[in-house]
Design a protein around this nucleic acid. Structure first.
Lengths: 127, 127
DNA sequence: TATATTCCTTCCGCCCACTGGAAGGTCAAG
DNA sequence: CTTGACCTTCCAGTGGGCGGAAGGAATATA
């Protein structure tokens, strides 16, 4: 497969696949004589793996670690769990942050009349 | 006040205050002969305003709009409310996204034994 | 007065994970 | 033989700053 095919099949932009090759995250299997990147099925699977991991919000470096574990047949599930649990904590922290932001802002928005007069609790709160 | 004073009083890094000056968000009141930025009380208030707006996650450009409304004595609270409601929707969208991410990942983490054996539902899900 | 310290200035590059675009090479079909 | 769809590399930009270097300015101390 050349880059366009593998990108389509993985559901990623070609630019992204090329970027992953550049940073050494998912290397192409080979290069043609004319320099075209070529990918085989396992490489496609790695791209799909990375796409799913990114969708969970794992950083590129975490994806690198996870890919390592993915290929390590003697891995410990504890190592995978540690990385995932860390990401889960980050998500939960972000959720708490957004919740308090939401509560405060929703309260202000509710109390703003939203008419053509200037007085506004939102501006008052920011001032 | 010179930049260090105003930054301390606003609770912002000097670098950030300088950056806000560069992008024309909060201009210094004046410059000394030797080129030092100088800020008066209203400028300090603008910095504090921006700091609070940024804490709500408003973008720098939204802060620009909000600052405009802040100074516009004939503003309509409807304009402020529109911007804030938009931000609120973004927050809610992000919350929904994080919630589904959280549910999926939490489920996987719960079902991962986290021992020294290789089989792992997290890896399985990504594969 | 000399020096040391602390502040300030501008400028450059880096962060993350891409994305867009330009300039040019390659390959199959018509 | 040309067209068009691919591909290549390289450069620059996104948002919202942060870190550091080189050098000027103001002030405190010896």
């Amino acid at each position: 497969m050349q880059i366009g095919d593998v990108a389509r099949r993985a559901g990623l932009p070609t630019k992204t696949v090329r970027y992953y090759a550049d940073i050494g995250l998912v290397a192409p299997t080979d290069r043609t004589e004319s320099g075209y990147r070529s990918y085989d099925e396992p490489a496609l699977k790695r791209l799909v793996f990375v796409k799913r991991a990114r969708a969970f919000g794992f950083t590129v470096n975490e994806c690198r670690e996870l890919l390592g574990l993915y290929h390590d047949k003697s891995r410990s599930s504890a190592d995978v769990k540690r990385i995932a649990a860390h990401r889960l904590e980050e998500i939960e922290a972000k959720q708490r942050e957004l919740q308090s932001l939401h509560d405060a802002l929703a309260h202000l928005v509710e109390n703003c009349r939203g008419d053509d007069r200037p007085d506004c609790p939102i501006i008052a709160h920011l001032s």
